[in-house]
Every structure is written in structure tokens, then in C-alpha cells.
């Protein structure tokens, strides 16, 4: 049975059929791969970071956790609405309807963070800020971004390069910064 099938495959028609199947599978796979690399949908479409930065709002105003602990945090919607409610232009803007609806109906805005590291990495914002890093060192120039996108892949090589550079000739610091247990537990 199987031999018959392979014999048929060796026919020109069979080769073409195999080719078509291969192409179909490959393109389906490529498309699926493509979808895995897409930015996820956010509750407020096209959220403009750049506008907020342009108004001179500091990163830490909305993401205050960064200076205190591991997570920078996403502002609660009451904080968003606290400002937007005051501004006539944004109070009734169609673009901000999701926020307004959420606030008025007591529902949550569900965001999908994109500046993420895998589950097995324990990252702490505070330590990095305390070490003199600025937000843009890792997160890029947010003043030019709409919806935030990572300026580079947050992988271990990238982390470790910076750690080793930071340590320089300080052997004790190097030990600390290159220790597996510093990030993985």
C-alpha cells in the first residue's frame, strides 16, 4: 500500500501534487509564524505614547512602580480618566470611548504588556533605575512611539552584555551580575 503510494508520488503528476501540498503547508506555517510575531490588540487602539511624552508627562507618573519595585505597572483607569476627564477634547473623543465606557460601567481595561520577559526571568525595575539606567536605555525612544514596541529583543545575551559592561573590572559586581540566580529562580 505504502509502496504503491510512493510509486505514484514519483510520477510527474505526483511530484506536482507533492509540491502543491508542500507549498500549502509551508505557507500555512509561514502565515502562522507571522501571526505569532504580531503585536497584540490593545484595549485603546493606537494609544499614543508620544503625545503623552510631548505633554511633558514623566514615565514614572503613569508607571510609578518602576522606581519602587519589580513591576512598572499599568495605570489604573481612574488615573487615566482623572486627566482625560478634565480635557474637553478627550472627554468625548471617540478614540477614548473604550476608556470612558470602562470607567462609567465599572469595567476593566485589559492591557497586554509587550515589554515582557519570559516567566522564568525575575526582572526588577528598581535595581536598574537605582544603577543609573534610564527608561529609554531599554525601552527606546518612547516619545516617537504610538503603541509601545520593544526597540530590541529582550533576550539573555542582550541583558548579560550590559551586565558585564556595567561590572567592568569590579570582580565582585561581575559575580553578582552574571550569577544565574540573580534573574532565574
Amino acid at each position: 500500500m505504502i509502496k504503491k503510494f510512493f510509486d505514484w508520488l514519483k510520477q510527474p503528476l505526483g511530484l506536482i501534487a507533492a509540491g502543491i501540498v508542500f507549498l500549502a503547508v509551508f505557507s500555512a506555517f509561514a502565515y502562522w509564524l507571522y501571526t505569532t510575531q504580531q503585536a497584540p490588540a490593545q484595549p485603546v487602539p493606537g494609544f499614543p505614547h508620544k503625545t503623552h511624552v510631548a505633554f511633558g508627562i514623566q514615565c514614572l507618573y503613569c508607571h510609578p512602580g518602576a522606581s519602587k519595585g519589580p513591576a512598572a505597572g499599568i495605570p489604573s483607569q481612574s488615573k487615566c480618566w482623572g486627566c482625560h476627564n478634565q480635557i474637553v477634547k478627550t472627554r468625548d473623543s471617540a478614540l477614548l470611548a473604550p476608556l470612558k465606557d470602562a470607567v462609567l460601567n465599572g469595567e476593566s481595561l485589559v492591557w497586554v504588556p509587550v515589554a515582557i520577559v519570559p516567566d522564568f526571568v525575575q526582572f526588577n525595575h528598581r535595581a536598574h533605575i537605582a544603577a543609573g539606567k534610564n527608561c529609554e536605555d531599554c525601552h527606546g525612544d518612547v516619545s516617537q512611539m504610538g503603541i509601545y514596541q520593544n526597540p530590541q529583543v529582550f533576550n539573555m545575551g542582550w541583558c548579560l552584555n550590559c551586565h558585564v559592561e556595567t561590572a567592568g573590572e569590579d570582580q565582585e559586581l561581575l559575580i553578582k551580575l552574571s550569577d544565574c540566580g540573580t534573574c532565574h529562580y
Binding site: 497584540p40 505597572g73 499599568i74 495605570p75 489604573s76 483607569q77 481612574s78 470602562a102 470607567v103 465599572g106 469595567e107 476593566s108 481595561l109 485589559v110 492591557w111 497586554v112 504588556p113 509587550v114 515582557i116
Partner: peptide, 8 residues
């Protein structure tokens, strides 16, 4: 990706 639901 995980969803995150901040406080209202």
C-alpha cells in the same frame, strides 16, 4: 503574552 487587568 498575558493579559493584565489593572485596578479600576
Amino acid at each position: 503574552y498575558v493579559k493584565r487587568e489593572p485596578y479600576q
